[in-house]
């Protein structure tokens, strides 16, 4: 019960750990900064509750966000005429019949629907509409781009590409951004 008993802890002798002393991760512990950071303590330099969005006791099994508790007031449900739809909730079932509705949507709405509903009628409809608005879809980047109206691109000698300034829509940051880019015609559709 005296001070001598603390010597193995102070020395942190790895040999001592094997020789039947103490597991230092539990006695001396560890620097908790990374564990606190992974918990979100603090987040954005502010104090937040963390247990309401707690994913798992271990960082390794917290690969994805979890849906927290939330409630939707009644007045938000069954709103009629969302997305220009006669039917509530809205639906897009026909390429022919729904084209006019889609033409009324803003660019961002089109992008949202394109990325949110793969392999559906609406993905096709939004593709067609964006093309009408001179956006082109880049097959490798999986992103939409349009010409920067302020600059005329320079077409290459072989006619297979052009170099110029384009406006991209970045779906990760959810914003339009201007980039200089070498555009190959066979990469877009």
């Amino acid at each position: 019960f005296g001070l001598k008993a603390l010597i193995p802890l102070i020395k942190q002798d790895p040999q001592g750990e094997k020789n039947g002393q103490y597991d230092h991760s539990m006695t001396l512990g560890a620097d908790l900064s990374s564990m606190l950071y992974s918990l979100g303590i603090p987040r954005d330099k502010q104090h937040h509750r963390v247990l309401d969005t707690f994913q798992s006791p271990w960082a390794e099994t917290s690969r994805s966000e979890v849906e927290p508790k939330f409630s939707i007031p009644d007045s938000f449900n069954n709103i009629s005429n969302v997305l220009q739809s006669n039917v509530t909730p809205p639906c897009f079932d026909s390429i022919q019949n729904d084209q006019q509705r889609v033409a009324l949507f803003q660019d961002e709405t089109l992008f949202y629907l394109f990325y949110k509903h793969p392999a559906t009628v609406i993905q096709e409809l939004t593709y067609l509409e964006l093309r009408k608005r001179n956006w082109r879809y880049h097959k490798t980047l999986k992103a939409w781009l349009t010409k920067d109206p302020m600059m005329e691109p320079i077409v290459s000698q072989d006619g297979l590409s052009e170099k110029g300034s384009y406006v991209f829509f970045d779906p990760q940051r959810w914003e339009k951004c201007q980039r200089d880019f070498l555009l190959f015609y066979n990469a877009i559709m």
């Binding site: 908790l32 918990l39 303590i41 509750r49 963390v50 247990l51 960082a59």
Partner: peptide
């Protein structure tokens, strides 16, 4: 980790 969460909240 859980106890740290409780200590925070």
């Amino acid at each position: 980790r859980v106890i740290l969460g409780i200590s925070n909240d």
